[in-house]
Design a protein around this nucleic acid. Sequence first.
DNA 1: AGCGGAATTTGAATCGATCCAACAAAAATG
DNA 2: CATTTTTGTTGGATCGATTCAAATTCCGCT
Lengths: 359, 359
Amino acid sequence: MASLLEGQARPIRLADIARAAGVSHGTASNVFSRPEIVRAEVRERVKAVAEQMGYAGPDPKGRLLRAGKVNAIGVATTEPLSYFFDDPFARVMMAGISEACDATGAGIALVSAANQEKLAWNVQSALVDGFILFCIEGGSRLVDLTRERRLPFVALELGFQDETVSAIGVDNVAGARLAARHLAEFGHRRFAVLSLGFADNRTGFVTPEVVRSAVYTGTRDRLAGYFEELSGFGIDTAKIPVYETENEEKSTRAGLEAIFARGEPPTAILAMSDRMALIAIDWLRARGLAVPDDVSIVGFDGVPDGALSTPPLTTIAQPITEIGRRAARMILDHDGAVRRETMGVEFVVRGSTGPAPKV
Amino acid sequence: MASLLEGQARPIRLADIARAAGVSHGTASNVFSRPEIVRAEVRERVKAVAEQMGYAGPDPKGRLLRAGKVNAIGVATTEPLSYFFDDPFARVMMAGISEACDATGAGIALVSAANQEKLAWNVQSALVDGFILFCIEGGSRLVDLTRERRLPFVALELGFQDETVSAIGVDNVAGARLAARHLAEFGHRRFAVLSLGFADNRTGFVTPEVVRSAVYTGTRDRLAGYFEELSGFGIDTAKIPVYETENEEKSTRAGLEAIFARGEPPTAILAMSDRMALIAIDWLRARGLAVPDDVSIVGFDGVPDGALSTPPLTTIAQPITEIGRRAARMILDHDGAVRRETMGVEFVVRGSTGPAPKV
DNA sequence: AGCGGAATTTGAATCGATCCAACAAAAATG
DNA sequence: CATTTTTGTTGGATCGATTCAAATTCCGCT
């Protein structure tokens, strides 16, 4: 005998229950959110009515507006969403973030968009209490967009010089020096660098001009670290080819092709990410070059995959999980302050480096 | 010269802007959400005021309540949040879900909680338009909880018999038969099964009673598939040890210990997940047993890691990414119908299986 | 019966926006 | 100049809950 109006599936609201049970909204609300202060008899009656009418429970949309807090943190990137599940570095980072969120019962909202317009919209409309930004490409744009939300946020990884934004990074210079020193001490004298981006949408050999106008100071610092240390060994860093990739398969292979196409191929490669280093190992093997007998490689990051490659990768390990944990906590217990943390790195010697080949 | 009241950081609302700019809140709203219908002059004035007062843009919390749609789908599990980034099966699934979400610009909210109370709260308060459920452990509870939200949802993987819930799964029986036949044709006669759970929080050898009262029909079906096929080869399936694990390292190793502690060790292992199969390969190598020369192993799932192990894993591959895509689309273009889809599996022969050892 | 205090319940206010019918002003038309 | 159209603006209603001060009911005690 449903009336025509009942026919439409207009969802039941708390007010409907209140009316049907003959209590005020206030009481009906209490039945669900603070049952202990409602008299047992009333409580049961209201619950029964709710049950019978098929009430779905207080709608979080309504609750949210009143409460103000979403209890979720947004993790944003300009890469497609699958980046979070594919990229080894991102995965370890997310594990750290997950841990901190699990501990406080907060949720995680993944925000991304390859195209700029959607990115803006997604950042503007994400229901979160704060953001953690993976600043890979398009980092500064992502930061600007996020800043407009006026919510707490932390930038991860290759930060910018901008001191007004909270960020967690690693000591890039120190890490890079460690890697370079290790190779130099093994007697290597001919180097090549597989570099991360200095600015968006660039690949190819890097000129001093590019370095000078770097947007991504993390990249710049790592390169500076390499060069400082190598200079100390009397190596002419001006001659070292530095190839900027997009940290994926295609441009990294292109970089290797380009580097080895020149005379005097390197005996040691400094890669600014494990991802590139692993691709390089693969590429060298296919080229018939032995690692580390013909060419030594040091990565950067310390992702788990590095331990599993053949040979296992020597690398500069960042405390990725810990960075993730801290970033999440920065948002979760945000106090309005801008915090910039620099974490130490750890040098992990594995099998991809060895003495320079005898000439 | 800020007044005392301005001192407190009460966030600026659209209504504040409207008042300051001398327009109605309706117009102020239009300036942000439908700028084209506002006269240019007014629009700029309002924008200027907003800029100057430090307005963060329309708060999605408010917008949401009005709009009703969150534009995000929730992915829920009873495992900790890091499961989404650690588990290979989950990762591939998430990649599929990501793809579908990226295509429509929807976001992903990760929902989880190891403890039951928090799980309930998290499911009840997640701001999403629908759920995709990873029903591993505690699946039925998760389904019940989600059902109460009265939002569209899809259950993945080991489903239940419950025909009233939408679900996407694979043809477990057919897949299992394929695996069993392959091994039987290689001449194997002594088998062991590493099984997924039949019910929550159980591990150990499985009795016919356990199988009969199985909660997870997916597990039951795979076992049935194995047994049906092996029976066809005249093998007495009653003698086959079936060890139920929690699909992780510890209980899987315990299972292997238990299986190999009995007389007449198996020459072939049927694992209901690649994860267990890979752990088994590892365990066998440590035991000095060669795969596949001494023992053959077939997995189930078809996760990418399986291709990289030594030896690479022979397995029953599910179309994981496609399942993820479809699940996401089911939520995104939900039409109120209950849908149950069964996908086919693909048999991938790699290196972990070979002829039964000569006696 | 009368009183004080504890336990419940009420209902208006609020959270922050969007929507839309009605109105006003400006522009086009006869 | 009067009338229609077009274009913009207004302000009240609404989305679905929670909160809190005030009002009411309940209870034990003298």
